[in-house]
Simulated assay, not measured.
Amino acid sequence: MDKSVSKSSQPSGGNGFPTSSSNGRKLNKKLVYLCSIVMAVLFFLGIAAFVFLFLLHKNPKATNKNIASFRVDSIFVSRFKLSSSKITASWDIRLSVQNPSTASVSYQTFYTWIQYKQERLSNVTNIAPFQVRGNNWTAENGKLVAKSVRADEKVIEDMATEMANGSVNFNIGLYAGFWIGNEEAKRVWRAVEAHCSDLKIGFSSKDNMGKLIGEPIECILTKTW
């Protein structure tokens, strides 16, 4: 009688050690606990990501991306003349400016200039202040003049060679400074530089006038502040 009681009082695993089923239950509890922690962390990370994306969408001025877009719609060149070391010309350009933000943008400073390769050919021209409403485009006109601008002799030769073939590729550089927002206390000042390249100007063999060939050219942002 005493022996049977003694045997039944011992753990089923023998030698006083816990059974494998007991170890399994403890392991399952730990796994459930760890899974709960992981799910909680993922849940809060998901909420944080959602809030960040929501604020980014509601406040596009918080990022440097998609500040503005610029496009050259047309160029008309007149009184174009090359000498051994000077260039004389007048450029009438039409630029379109896009505001991808939901807030209005007020351009206070807008400078443009003409380049051939790396050589600047015109004086820097300031376009009068203008405003672009949210998610909208506006077109602005500018007149750039080169009054006997000096240029490297090699630049003159390259330009004359292109012109003899009927067209010359010019570039336009621009700098724009603007306010984003309507309320003075909350608006933000930003500035950009852009480069509009490969503007092919076709010239007539009968006169010194030319115009942009082909479709409007999109400009590329090179700097943002």
Rank of each mutant, 00 (worst) to 15 (best):
I87F: 11
I87D: 11
S90I: 12
T88A: 07
F70D: 06
F76E: 01
Y107V: 05
L95W: 06
S83E: 02
R94M: 15
A48V: 03
P60D: 09
S69F: 05
D73T: 15
I93N: 13
V105I: 10
Q108C: 01
I47N: 04
A48P: 02
R71A: 08
L53T: 06
K86G: 00
W113F: 09
V72I: 04
D73Q: 13
A89Q: 01
Q98R: 10
V105E: 06
F76G: 05
R79L: 14
A49R: 05
S106T: 10
Y107D: 03
R71P: 00
Q115Y: 12
W113Y: 06
L45I: 12
T112V: 12
I114R: 07
F52A: 13
S84F: 07
F54P: 00
F70V: 10
V105D: 06
V72M: 13
K61H: 11
S85C: 06
I75E: 13
L53V: 11
S101Y: 13
K58Y: 09
L95I: 03
T112M: 07
V51A: 08
L45Q: 10
S85H: 08
L56K: 11
D73G: 11
F70Q: 06
N99K: 01
T112W: 02
A48T: 06
N99D: 05
V105S: 06
T109H: 08
A103G: 10
Q115A: 05
R94T: 14
I47G: 04
P100Y: 11
I93Y: 09
T88M: 08
I114S: 04
S84R: 09
N66R: 13
L55E: 01
V77K: 11
L45P: 00
F76R: 09
A49M: 04
K81D: 10
K61C: 08
A62M: 14
Y107I: 04
I67N: 15
A68P: 00
W91Q: 02
K61Y: 12
S69T: 10
A48Q: 04
Y111M: 09
Q115I: 03
G46E: 02
A62K: 15
T63I: 03
V97T: 04
S84Q: 09
G46A: 01
F54I: 02
Q98P: 00
V77I: 10
A89S: 02
K65A: 11
F50D: 00
I114D: 00
S78T: 14
V97C: 05
L53P: 13
T88I: 03
A68S: 12
V77Q: 07
W91S: 01
K86S: 03
S74W: 13
S78L: 04
Y111K: 11
Q108V: 08
S106V: 14
W91L: 02
S106I: 13
Q115N: 07
F80H: 15
K86Q: 03
F50E: 00
I93C: 10
I47C: 02
D73F: 14
F50A: 02
Q108I: 08
A62E: 09
Q98E: 12
S83N: 01
A49P: 00
T63A: 02
P100V: 02
K65W: 09
A68I: 15
N99C: 00
P100H: 07
A48M: 03
Y107E: 01
K65I: 14
G46I: 05
Y107P: 09
Y107N: 07
S90Y: 06
D92E: 06
F50W: 04
K86H: 03
S74M: 13
V72D: 08
Q98Y: 01
